[in-house]
Design a protein around this nucleic acid. Sequence first.
DNA 1: TTGTATGCGTTATCAT
DNA 2: ATGATAACGCATACAA
Lengths: 354, 354
Amino acid sequence: MAQGPTITTIAERAGVSIASVSRVLNGLPTRQETVRKVMAAAEELGYVRNAVARSLKSRRTHQVAFAMADVGNPAYLAMLREIQPVLKAAGYRLVLHSTGAVVADEIDVLHSLGERYVDGMIMVPLRVTEAHLQMLGAARAPVVVIGSVPEGTPVDNVRADSRTGVRLAVDHLHALGRRRIALVNGPTDTVPGAARGAAYREALAELGLPYDEELVEIGDFYRAEGGRAVAALLNRVSDVDALMCANDLIALGALDVLRAAGKRVPEDVAVVGMDDTDLAAASWPSLTSVSLGSAERGRVAAELLLDRLQDGEHEPRVVTVPPRLVVRASTTPEPPATRGRSRDGRSTEGGGTS
Amino acid sequence: MAQGPTITTIAERAGVSIASVSRVLNGLPTRQETVRKVMAAAEELGYVRNAVARSLKSRRTHQVAFAMADVGNPAYLAMLREIQPVLKAAGYRLVLHSTGAVVADEIDVLHSLGERYVDGMIMVPLRVTEAHLQMLGAARAPVVVIGSVPEGTPVDNVRADSRTGVRLAVDHLHALGRRRIALVNGPTDTVPGAARGAAYREALAELGLPYDEELVEIGDFYRAEGGRAVAALLNRVSDVDALMCANDLIALGALDVLRAAGKRVPEDVAVVGMDDTDLAAASWPSLTSVSLGSAERGRVAAELLLDRLQDGEHEPRVVTVPPRLVVRASTTPEPPATRGRSRDGRSTEGGGTS
DNA sequence: TTGTATGCGTTATCAT
DNA sequence: ATGATAACGCATACAA
């Protein structure tokens, strides 16, 4: 923990100037003899380059931030898992920001971009307020937003298509003969909540099914709250034969409640989740879920950011990642071969140490 | 994205010296008039303090690193979820390192500590080699290791007790009348693999059960590999009535294979996992699992690190977190009230955006 | 109270 | 090829 050696220390030890040391360390043309002396001194002293000083001079930190509402959210984790290796491969460190679903914190994080401790940022805003847009417009480093921002916002933008996603799910349920399809949504003042609510309504209309507001229940994006919402719904309407849940956690809560109520899934009530998290493949029964491409959105966002970090200026890009319906046991008793998709084994070694 | 203003810019604008600007910005005693001028200028220019320059001067980055094998591992994620808020509350940013289970990369990460882009580090090494110990001894910033390091290593140390953990599980299975209890382990050259292997043997001995090496199968800590290992095991021995799996992913793989083989869980074969990840509560059937306190280890590690970042020097501390058996359906048809523990609803809002 | 000047550890631009 | 020196943006000891 001692005061580490600097290029000055090395210069003295090697009997050369700090300029020469710097040159050797950066591989610039130098006489063999000098190289030898410097390398030897650096080796002996256990020299390690100071990243902070280097950043001050070079104006690059080789760090990138990833900001989302909650590290505990499996959808964000799926993004994180993709973002991390992409950035690492390009020589960037990843700084994590968990804003706790508080708008002020998200603004704060954007503000902190000005501190220049990162070269750029990937952000998944929960809501997109006027303040967000203002900060994004004034950002002093490149930002990639996962989610939707209005045209003209000067940031790259990776979108999911939850409209199509919801339609895939509702169509699927309809094709299975379900006609009383309820929506269990999260708060409608969030971006995903609003989008999914509207998409549900549209999907019904396209199928010629009536929109019955009795069939819509608003809770929160958590398992317990999802369960409560479903309980309330079942208490109100008795003939529900399918539940479209706004995310997987809500769907898991639904399964809990349905089981407790003695309803069979999918025979009595079919259940569809959203985000296709790890929990969906593992659940009981396994959960049909709409993948909104969390992983791919993360990967694309990382690539867009890297691209911009290198190229610098060009027009903002918008990429939309298509959704995909993953059918499992919660809608069909005999799910197709997809069961326990192979990517389930992708992660993890060493579940803790002794 | 313009060249941001610095204290020099502000000084000119306000007609004062950079020293005065710095004083105002840091709340040092200054004349009201000056304060006003500086604040006004800073406001107009949208000044944000440069964190890099500040760090170079103050020798503190207000960043902390968390290094583990794989961001995709739920056990590490559980730690991450606890570490993040603790550090955030103390004003530290979190830098993530995923070493990909490669020893050389772990050494690399320890080496990079010398670059001083972080004030300290929390690391979960997969193996603890001589190189690790050497780097830890020479570290130029405080390190907290989650896992076990030998006495005398100058770092704080948060341990799990997988020995007791395995015993809890084996005792549980024994109490349920199981006598042919197999171990499905990961590589025995990893810290957790070795510990769990030894603990299994001990637990059997204490119960007076014979150690039968036919009952031990080595695979890897993944779902697919776990499944393969179990398949091989079942193919070799026909009277297995319980599986002790070295982590939850292996256990999930076991459930897959048992189901495919037409075995009932837990009637024919009881299954226990380890780490008690989110997947355990969600699985089908829900999985009895030994919690090694991943979350708590993470929290404790963060607290130890913060403590050392403030206090500076004191004796290395060792904290051991006790394990806990969480009984679910995979060992008892009628699991206790623990089903779907309440913390399941803790995370997540907004499963992606449209 | 305020300004001048120095240093944090590097990189880069000059001369030499 | 090498050395002296100036920046990078900030904080601070010292002088005024």
